[in-house]
Write a protein that binds this DNA or RNA. Structure first.
Lengths: 105, 105
DNA sequence: ACTATAGTTCGACATATATCGAAATATAGT
DNA sequence: ACTATATTTCGATATATGTCGAACTATAGT
């Protein structure tokens, strides 16, 4: 059927679910937009955005952004780290690479 | 924020929603698995699967597969064509290409 | 200790989804 | 016309989701 196991297919389905909400997708793109080409594979925590900024950009309440961030994190698309009062968020380049390969035929 | 318009982001979100159900993703992969590398860009209707076969592969009832096919078609991921009693389904290689580019950073 | 700022958790609500089985429609062969 | 096969539509049901606002927690600065 394909070279992915049932478990892997379910994992990818979860990832696509995380990207299936327009606001969550905007958040994801907002985070990827600060990862320039060539930085794939390099964990670059300087290249990160705070939750409050995301709420402004996407125009939803902070509690909703928090919920979305949790979901993106749960499926492994992003990483977070507390920096003082704020939480820095950035995408995991390896996940993006995996998705890139997923659609390579 | 990113080089995609709000409309485009919403379209991609719809596509990811279509792929967010494990059974629908299995159907999609089942259809892509018969598109060998090099056939991208070529509309190859010989390379297609019927709905009854998909129901067997994915192990859900045919009415459910029909519903999933409709959804995959609605977002443009697949194409269908009646061939006698049966409906042939195949993926649109351009959509796969677009998704491949989406995750290119 | 107090205050301001940032983020999280909770409860509530409305809306969407996946699935099934039964009934309906379409096509092909006799 | 009848029958068998393939697919679609419909109705029902259970479950999941996105969003908000209010209350709560965490951190930093004074």
């Amino acid at each position: 059927m394909s070279n992915y196991s049932v478990g892997q297919i379910e994992d990818f389905a979860e990832i696509f679910k995380a990207l299936s909400n327009p606001n969550r997708l905007k958040i994801f793109l907002s985070l990827t937009s600060c990862c320039k080409p060539g930085t794939v594979g390099v964990i670059d925590r300087d290249c990160s955005v705070y939750i409050g900024e995301l709420a402004d950009e996407v125009a939803v309440v902070k509690s909703t952004v928090s919920h979305h961030i949790k979901e993106l994190k749960r499926v492994g698309l992003i990483k977070t780290e507390r920096q003082g009062q704020k939480i820095a968020c950035w995408v995991d380049p390896e996940m993006v690479e995996a998705l890139h390969r997923f659609f390579k035929f």
